[in-house]
């Protein structure tokens, strides 16, 4: 019995010691890196949102001024999302909406849609998708410039009937053999513009954080 208790004492104390040392080290590192982590996370998010906004078109802190966006079929959101108003010199210069194209080839395509108060698109970016590599994934800016053709478009430009890919008689380019993904994106962007048109007043009325 003595042998047992001695051995248990030895092992538990040594493991205890190492646990405490390890935990202290980690706690220290965590405290040390926390500010940097938060900063870089925020920087990254800003960078993502800023992709749909022309450089110099805003001076507000996009992340801090995030506002909740209710779930809405027009935006494809089944859970509440967020939108980010941007201001330049105190004046709202654009709104960035989260939107989802539900009918991608392989599930949802998540989008950020930047819209100027006049309803003109400042840019669209795909933030998440599962389209077939090499086929439907050209909607991603990392793979092709296709998504840039939305820049400057609005509900009247082109005409509502032309908010389709060329294969279906519209104005938007596509790649042979892969029409589902661009079709889904075009539709989602059009719907986002619709949503903006319907909720323009409230979207633009939100307070904006100028703490930049």
């Amino acid at each position: 019995m003595n042998e047992f208790s001695h051995n248990i004492k030895l092992t538990s104390l040594s493991l205890f010691g190492f646990s405490v040392v390890g935990a202290v080290l980690l706690a220290g590192t965590f405290q040390l890196t926390r500010p940097s982590i938060e900063k870089s996370e925020r920087d990254a998010k800003i960078k993502l949102i800023a992709q749909v906004l022309p450089a110099g078109s805003y001076d507000s802190d996009l992340v801090k001024s995030a506002h909740p966006l209710p779930a809405d079929p027009l935006l494809g959101l089944r859970k509440p999302g967020e939108y980010y108003p941007a201001t330049l010199a105190g004046k709202t210069s654009a709104v960035v909406l989260e939107a989802i194209a539900p009918d991608g080839y392989d599930g949802e395509i998540k989008l950020l849609v930047g819209i100027q108060p006049d309803g003109q698109l400042t840019g669209v970016r795909v933030t998440e998708h599962h389209e077939t590599p090499g086929l439907g994934d050209y909607i991603d800016i990392a793979k092709s410039q296709w998504i840039r053709q939305f820049d400057g478009k609005s509900l009247d430009n082109p005409k509502p009937d032309d908010w389709k890919v060329k294969k279906d008689g519209g104005k938007f380019d596509y790649m042979t053999g892969a029409t589902i993904s661009p079709r889904a994106v075009v539709k989602a962007v059009e719907h986002a513009l619709d949503y903006f048109a319907q909720h323009k007043a409230e979207l633009l009325a939100q307070e904006v954080n100028h703490g930049q």
Binding site: T132, T176, A178
Partner: peptide, 10 residues
């Protein structure tokens, strides 16, 4: 089909 899906659907 993995590498060249575009050609492989024509």
């Amino acid at each position: 089909i993995i590498s060249f899906p575009v050609f492989m659907t024509q």
